[in-house]
């Protein structure tokens, strides 16, 4: 068993296709998925919900001191993106220079390698964002 393998596998729908959840009772949307609506709690009714992958930059930074596994990607832009549907998510913004990033700029998801377990372990893919043309 390789560390992180099953962890990633069970999150693939979320990480590949932004499958979150929403509460049918209060219409709140959640990404990542929540099983309990913080507003309605037990009276809530949770169902899967697919996010569009479109949003805008809410805050950003350039990571110059990367953690293990991200060494050669640095410097990379990390942002909190406000998704069109409401929730915020943390993700890298790719194919851009740090100076191109501004709060409010429109972004959309791309499918990328996020981290690989060395050169012999599994590759974990998922969403990142790019600036919209």
């Amino acid at each position: 068993m390789t560390k992180g393998l099953a962890t990633h596998w069970r999150l693939m729908p979320q990480r590949y296709n932004l499958i979150g959840t929403h509460c049918k009772n209060c219409k709140s949307k959640f990404f990542p998925q929540r099983k309990i609506c913080p507003k309605c709690r037990r009276t809530g009714s949770i169902e899967e919900f697919k996010f569009s992958g479109k949003g805008e930059i809410y805050s950003y930074t350039t990571v110059c001191a990367p953690p293990q596994g991200f060494e050669y990607q640095a410097p990379y832009v990390l942002a909190i993106v406000k998704m069109k549907e409401g929730p915020f998510i943390t993700a890298q913004i790719v194919d851009c220079k740090p100076e191109e990033i501004e709060i409010g700029k429109k972004v959309e998801t791309v499918f990328r390698k996020v981290i690989a377990d060395g050169s012999s372990g599994i590759i974990r893919y998922g969403y990142k964002f790019k600036l919209r043309d």
């Binding site: 930074t61 990571v63 990390l78 943390t90």
Partner: peptide
């Protein structure tokens, strides 16, 4: 949803600072 995306603690506080 943070560490997996390459977030570090300095970067999280940088997002707040911004």
């Amino acid at each position: 949803w943070e560490a997996f995306k390459g977030a570090t603690f300095p970067s999280l506080y940088a997002l707040m600072a911004r």
